[in-house]
Nucleic acid binder design. Structure first.
Lengths: 223, 223
DNA sequence: AATAAAATTTAGATTCGTCTAAAAATTTAA
DNA sequence: TTAAATTTTTAGACGAATCTAAATTTTATT
């Protein structure tokens, strides 16, 4: 019961959690393999090992889902990941699009006592720099009802919560135009022919956003 | 030339550096094995692999010593280790004897950009909480001419620089009596029969230290 | 519904870091 | 200086995490 999980195992579990959207759907071998950048055969192998350890429910050919035990592991890693992201961005001044990779390494070098102290040192932040909520030490996470920017209507005022795609080019683009979590957006116009959006950012600059970009921005409606 | 070293390899290199006392002597297979807590056969194996990679000069049966390349690797890891120790102790409030293990993990999850920013964030500290100097980003380390407390004479005033033994019980004892780096000690008396020392700590409490403990405290003479 | 295409699993191989047991070399002691 | 004790190395094995290639199962298409 109380053996240590390897960083590799923890990574698989974290990815399964993310891909299952908080454990609401089964994760397919191929999707998992793509996310972790390993071959499908390897994912199959690991899935059956995680299944032996009761961390996932896995049915051959139909994918996997985390058990309660697995979900706790996932949320604990995600907690550490996001706390480090806050540290790197707020205390060390790394930009929003640089922190992910580093946090990926640090999270596995972090025991619970360390993450708890770090949280306190950071002033108990509620979200990471991408706007995603940080699970508390019991593994509870605040559920946000977000929608994609592409799903808003004209004249809506919204606030960016998180970004879906981790593509560096996209993150750079967003960073450049201040399209970061917390940013306020006014949707001025929606073009019917290509579904692009004209938006005003933080009550200042007006921008044209492609449908593609809008699909990747998760937002909440404001007011 | 530019492949990544594994955390394991980095650990071996760091230990070789430490055991060779800054590369002044050959490190024997058995000492290395004891320090890393692996079997001698494993150490032999790794030594020949590190030799293939030109990180150590290794001669069968006579031990190993770091090459210049290996020494750079060692100092870079030690730099990261000690910066994290400062962070954990100064910013997160961990005690002096708790930080080593955690820093051991974090050092391998740290790229150069991160250690540089961390250093700046910490206000460019010169030493870690144990009093050991932190190598700069070029891998240069301040050489201190320290001696063991057991080598001082009566009435000397000295300052603790570092502790040799990493034994937790010893660290706790030292911590309890404020025998930490930076502490000022006045050697009041040296008992000839058991070579124990009577010392005054920070101009306050008077203590009796066994020869064993005195052997483990590295100090510099003051004034 | 049969077959072609795609996804998944199985089988077998490889590398890293470790072990134990046995062989070889060095050091110590009689 | 020879024999005994100790240290080191070699040989062979193993588990974790990965791969490729082949076999199997599921899904899609005609």
């Amino acid at each position: 019961m109380y053996y240590q999980l390897s960083p590799t195992e923890q990574n698989y579990i974290k990815q399964i959690y993310t891909l299952s959207d908080g454990n609401h759907q089964n994760v397919l071998t191929s999707d998992l393999a793509a996310a972790i950048k390993i071959k499908a055969a390897t994912a199959t192998d690991m899935l059956s090992r995680l299944s032996d350890k009761k961390l996932v429910d896995y049915e051959k050919y139909y994918g996997a889902r985390l058990t309660d035990k697995g979900k706790q592991v996932a949320l604990n890693i995600i907690r550490k990941h996001r706390l480090w992201e806050v540290f790197l961005s707020v205390k060390l001044g790394f930009s929003w699009d640089e922190v992910h990779e580093m946090a990926e390494e640090l999270e596995h070098a972090t025991n619970d006592e360390l993450s708890n102290r770090l949280e306190q040192f950071l002033g108990n932040p509620k979200t990471d720099p991408h706007g995603d909520p940080i699970p508390n030490r019991k593994g509870e996470i605040e559920k946000q009802k977000t929608i994609r920017l592409s799903e808003t209507g004209q004249d809506d005022t919204v606030e960016i919560r998180s970004v879906e795609d981790q593509n560096p080019a996209l993150l750079k683009f967003l960073s450049k135009h201040k399209l970061t979590p917390g940013a306020r957006l006014l949707v001025k116009e929606i073009n019917q022919y290509d579904r692009s959006l004209e938006i005003k950012v933080n009550n200042k600059k007006v921008l044209q956003l492609s449908r593609d970009v809008a699909e990747n921005l998760w937002i909440i409606r404001v007011k």
